[in-house]
Each structure stands twice: as C-alpha cells, then as structure tokens.
Design a protein around this nucleic acid. Structure first.
Lengths: 295, 295
DNA sequence: CATTGGCATACCGAAAACGTATGGGTTGAC
DNA sequence: GTCAACCCATACGTTTTCGGTATGCCAATG
C-alpha cells in the first residue's frame, strides 16, 4: 500500500466523483481512475459504487476511509515532527550540571530556556564530574554545565564565563575580619578539599593556585560536593577554596572572602558531543551565556 | 511522503544498518541507501548519524520513527478492515422489521446472527410498512424483514416462509368454542382492520381472502399495528384476521383460531437493495431462514 | 435521436526505483 | 604499516510505475 493511493482514494471519496477529485488534485481524470481501480484490485474488493452521477463509497470503502485519513495525518505529522526537532522547535534537551552551579544558574536558566524553546522538554540531572563525561559520551545527557570544562576529543567545549576562587570560612574565624585574605595567611591552615584532580579537575586548579603561591594547606577532609564542604567549614574543620558562585545557597554562618593577589579563576563551560548537531545546543548556549553574564 | 520510504526508514532504523535492512527487505543495498537519502532530503534534515559501524537515529529520526510506525500500522489496518468488511467478517447490518414478526423472530434471530457474524454490529429498527421501503432505498437500513414482501424494481426479495391467517377474538367470544372457524361465520361481524392496502399490503391479502369467500365484515376500526388491534379485540370492538405468528406476545384474554377452508397465507420475506452486494445479506438470509423454519 | 456528463481503456512519454559495478573511509589483523 | 574486511555512497543502465492525451462506452436528458 502506498500513501499516494490513499490520498487519491480520500480525495475521490470526499468529492464523490473521479473528475472533481482529479481537478482538486490538479491531475487528469483517467490516471486517477486507474489508480482507484488499482487500489480496489489491491484490496480485493470494490470500494465505490459507480453510479451515473458519480461514485459512492461501499461499506468496505467507508471502513478504509477512516483509517486512510488517520494514516495520512500521521505520516504528515511525522514529517512535521522530524522537521520541528531538526529545527529545534521541539524535542528534548537533557542538561547535566554540577551542584555548585545549581543555585547560581538554574533559577535563571530554566525560565530563560522555557522562554527561548517553549516546545522543548527539559530535563536536569545533577551529576558529579566523572559521570558528566560518561553521560555526555553515551548521549544520556545532551549538554553539561561544567566548571571547569571537560577535555575529551569527542567533546566540544564553549567557555561561557569564569568564577574567581574565594575562601569560605566560619563567620567567627579571625580571617573573616579581613576584607580580602592574603594568600600567605593560608599557610598551614587545614583545607576541606574536593575529590582529587583525576576525579574532579576543580581540585587541580586549587592545587595549582596554592603551589604557585608556595602555600601548603594540609587536607583536613575530602568531600564529594561543595555542599558537604560548607558543612565541614561550618563545623570548624577547616577552610575551603571554592568558586565565588558557591556563595549562593551557602548556609548561614559561613562567610566568603576574596583571595588578595590571587587572580586565578575557574572556567564555566558548556560541553556537548561533537557529533550532536542539534540547534538546541546553540540556543542553550546563548541562554547560559546570558545567565552567566548576569552573575 | 510515500509509505515505501517510511517502510525503508523503519527497517533501517531497526536494523541500525543499511546493509542488514536491505537483506531483510530482500533488495540490494545501494537503492536502499539512495531512498534513505531521498527521505532525508524530503524532510530537510539528517535522520541518521553515519558511523563506521552502521547507522544511528538522530533526534529527528526518533521523532519520525514513532509516527512512521503508527502510520504504517494504520494503513495496513485500513486495508485489512476493508477486506474484512467486504468479506463479511466485520461491518454493520441494520435490520428493519415489522412489529408482528418481532416476538416470533427476534428472540431467536438475534442470537443466531451473533453466532454467525460475531464481528458485525447489529442494529434493529421497528418500521412500518411504508417507511421500510424508504429506509431500504436510502440505505439507512440494510435489510428488511417483511410480511408480505416489498415490490420495487430496486429491491430484491427472498421469500423465507409463510404464515396462515388466523382469527383473533376475545376468549369469551362464542366463536372461541369452535376448533376452527368456518369463513361463513364471519359474515357481518365487525373487523379490526390494519391500514388500507396502499399503506400496508397485508390488508389487501385479508381483503382478498374475504372477497374470495364472499364474506363482508364491516370495519369497526383501523389501527396502525397488530398490537393495537389486539387491544381493540380484547375490548370487544371486533375480530382481527392476522398472521399466525401474532399469537406470540398477544395479551391474555385473546384466543386464536384457524379459519376452516381458508388456505390463504402471507409470505415472510427478506428484502434488500439490489445494488447492496454485502455477503452479510446472504448470511442474514440463512439465519432468518433457519429461524422461520422452526416457527 | 442527439447531446451531455461521467467513468473506463489504450497508448505513449516521463519519472522513479532497482540492480550491478565501483569508489572511499574506517577498523582490525598479521 | 600494509592489507583485508566491512559498510555506506555514487554512477549508470534497465525496468517498472505513473501521468497525460485521445477515445470509447453507458446512462440520463431534452
């Protein structure tokens, strides 16, 4: 069965006449007549009663008409759906983000996305540094919000901003009295560290910062997330060096201070598979850039 | 859009490979490859990612796949439905019947039909003699159960049985003591008549019966249905001459007697439009014949 | 009896699809 | 590192299908 036949059939059924239907289809009457007869041969039963005043559906024709109309609509809908997805008007985008960025970005990013791509389903997943890369590669997330970027030959990176490092400490810490903390003051103080560099590249940025200023901070604890780090800082276990955006959503009782004479910052980036060519990614990127610009 | 393309597309999507799909479709690989690319050109977007190990659906391809599968199923279903209707395995049959036959036939006819044509929707409508013909001609009923048959050039008739006329009277009528009533005894007695012959051909059969025996019965009342006639007989307004099957469902207090030396009977027939070629009509006819044979 | 309206058939040219042969890129083995 | 294997893409000739024109047949109409 071919859709052309069904289209012709529906046209003839609606016009109740081969001639009228041929006119509407902008074709000659004889080939249309032939196609209708071929359709009847294919079904194995007459679909029309031929009268002297046109054509009239038989019961079998009526049964076919309903399904034929639906099938035509579905095929057209399928084409339109595929085009809409390809154009980024519809579809689905799954975003992997890291915990630190959630409070700073999501409340602005989500409405921005809904406004820009209203027909698109959004999904968000908080993912650790190591799983973000795997989930990008197996396509279970479309894009990842990273700090810093993921480096991998299959993964494309777009830097959308940067965050300076800041020192997080309990409000009653002596350092809290300073406006900005000189690096030298960190010497020997206990550090609440994130997972080692091979699991979380943010750690290596912190390590490089300390090394460059020749500061040694003993690692008091290693934690998985910035949220956990804040808890330990609040408990007086040590200090944490975290991106500035961690201030948003940090518990009361913790204060943040800039690190004087440290201009280090950590990149915020959007990452996605190179072979994912969805226009949704460009749109997502634009939205994320706008949000980061207002941080 | 043509279904061939969609079939090929679904095959390639499921096989995740042009070569494998071509094998399953029993065709060569290159033309399949060409068709897929033509489909992509028609959509205006790639539907597959070409890897070194086969083909993989893009998001747009996934959107199309769902609808394509449904459209294919619907088209196949439409063909099957049309064939089933043409073969009488499915469909709808609308039966116009007359009131007198209802009690005698329907309780047996309906189960018989449900058993013979389980996939077919049944509809029953009690119709007067005049409307039965009109409803057959405008196809709002498929067949009619008639007594006697409808005569019309467009209408086909199949006689399935006959009913002798009987006399209906109140139980206390003096005639009720006789086993069979001689025609002569009817002379001068009041008759409860049905509509005149031009509206109800059954009346003319009764009139012919009386005329042949040279019996005159004054018309006490004219009523529309046998049911009404029974009520008037019960009320003592007169006698009624009705087909024997009217006994079923007649009210208590009415008795029926054969008419001695009157062999007249009235045909029971199934009528339908000549140009209605549904096999359901043959099946209906067989069922009705079986039911009438057991009356 | 001629005319009109509507569908069916015949034939021809055009378009689409299929098959065979072949090219090109990547993977994996020796 | 070369070679074979695998898989998709392209090219070209052949066949099938489709659409257009011309025409025939039938019934209804005046």
């Amino acid at each position: 069965m071919e859709l052309r036949r069904l289209r012709y059939f529906v046209a003839v059924a609606e016009a109740r006449s081969v001639g009228k239907a041929a006119e509407r289809l902008r074709m000659a009457q004889p080939p249309l007549s032939v196609q209708i007869r071929k359709l009847e041969a294919e079904i194995g039963a007459p679909l029309f009663r031929r009268g002297t005043r046109g054509m009239d559906l038989t019961a079998a024709g009526q049964a076919l008409l309903v399904r034929a109309g639906e099938a035509l609509a579905l095929a057209a809908d399928g084409v339109e759906a595929a085009r809409a997805v390809a154009a980024g008007r519809r579809g689905r985008i799954s975003v992997g983000y890291m915990f630190v960025l959630a409070n700073a970005m999501l409340p602005r990013l989500i409405p921005e996305l809904r406004r820009s791509i209203p027909g698109v389903d959004l999904e968000f997943a908080e993912l650790s540094a190591s799983t973000r890369e795997a989930r990008l590669l197996d396509r279970s997330v479309t894009v990842a919000l990273c700090m810093p970027a993921i480096h991998h030959p299959e993964i494309q990176v777009a830097r959308i901003g940067a965050q300076p490092f800041m020192l997080a400490m309990p409000i009653r810490s002596p350092l809290a009295r300073l406006g900005a903390v000189p690096m030298a003051k960190l010497q020997g103080r206990p550090l609440i560290a994130l997972p080692p560099p091979e699991q979380d590249p943010a750690s290596s940025a912190v390590a490089a910062l300390l090394r460059r200023h020749q500061v040694v901070m003993p690692v008091a604890s290693r934690v998985e997330t910035v949220h956990s780090a804040m808890s330990l800082v609040l408990a007086g276990e040590g200090l944490a060096i975290v991106p500035a955006c961690a201030q948003l959503g940090a518990p009361r009782g913790i204060v943040f201070r800039a690190l004087r004479d440290a201009t280090d910052s950590i990149d915020i980036a959007v990452c996605w598979r190179r072979d994912t060519h969805s226009p949704l990614i460009r749109t997502f990127l634009k939205c994320a850039e706008r949000v980061v610009a207002r941080l």
